[in-house]
Computed example of a mutant assay.
Amino acid sequence: MAASERQSCSELRDAVVVQEGTREAPQDIKMALYKHGQLIPSLGDAKFRSPITPQVIEKKFEYYRNNETLNTHGMLVFGTCSGLSGIMANLVFRNSFKVKYEALKTYASLTTLPFLATIVTYKLFVTDALKSGNLSKESCVLRSSLVGVACGVSYPSALAFYKNGRLAVKYQTVPLPPKGRVMLHWLLLCQTGMKAMAIPLFFQILMGVFSGLHHYGVFEKTQARSVPDD
């Protein structure tokens, strides 16, 4: 008899616990639980933190946009230096060939083409390589310097030599070279001007080193922290 009463009380207590557990379930969801010694955030906390997520994403994109702006400005400055080098190369070789015709045409091409060539080459061989993560600091500086030498000095010098040489032949501003020694004749005629191109060569190497260090520093900061500090 006592055993049956004890069993009935136990069943009644289980029913009450089940009923209370069913009634208290929404309250348990709102409470924080501990699992493996770590605090599991409640549903209310998650709802409270959810509006912050768009702000974090917006800050991240703003940080990346600022870095892209810095990279773009750096490439534009580098390209501008190449354009100025092209202007100097055109001036030097026009004086060497004593050309006074079609000045606007030659200056426009000698300014625009080195500028565009520097930006495109720098983006392909330096910026994109940095983004892929396959470029060390030394390689970044070396590539940047080579871009400055190739696109900022060699290319505009060769272009100015070719264009003004054609104008010299067209308008006969200098004596025509003997047959079979054309290139040697033109090089001897322009050797003083070619020495003057050592000035933009120095500045292009210096600008290449500075630009490579700058862009590598921006890349390291971007990798170190994905979200900027407040």
Rank of each mutant, 00 (worst) to 15 (best):
A32T: 09
L70E: 01
M207L: 15
L104I: 14
Q38P: 12
L184A: 15
I205W: 00
Q27C: 03
P26E: 05
R181A: 14
N164S: 07
A129W: 05
L176Y: 09
F203H: 05
L159C: 10
V92D: 00
A103E: 13
M75K: 01
L188N: 15
T121Q: 05
Q27S: 03
T222R: 02
T80S: 06
S211K: 08
L201F: 11
Q38T: 14
Y34P: 15
Q172Y: 08
D128H: 12
L104P: 13
Q19E: 07
L206M: 09
G74L: 03
G165C: 01
L184Q: 12
E102R: 12
A129F: 07
T127H: 08
V77D: 04
S145I: 15
T106I: 09
S82V: 01
S132Y: 12
V126Y: 02
L213S: 03
Q38F: 15
E24Q: 03
A168G: 02
G44K: 11
G180K: 04
M31L: 13
S10F: 09
Y155K: 03
L104C: 11
K47Q: 15
D14L: 01
G74H: 01
I199N: 04
D128K: 13
A160S: 01
G74I: 08
M1F: 05
S145Q: 11
D45S: 14
M1L: 03
L167N: 01
G37V: 13
V174P: 06
T111F: 11
P177V: 09
L124D: 12
I119W: 11
T121D: 09
S144D: 09
E58C: 09
L187N: 09
A89C: 02
T111L: 13
S226C: 03
Y34R: 15
C9Y: 05
A25P: 04
D128P: 11
T111E: 06
L176V: 14
T118K: 07
S50N: 10
A158F: 11
A117K: 03
A103L: 10
E5Y: 07
D14M: 02
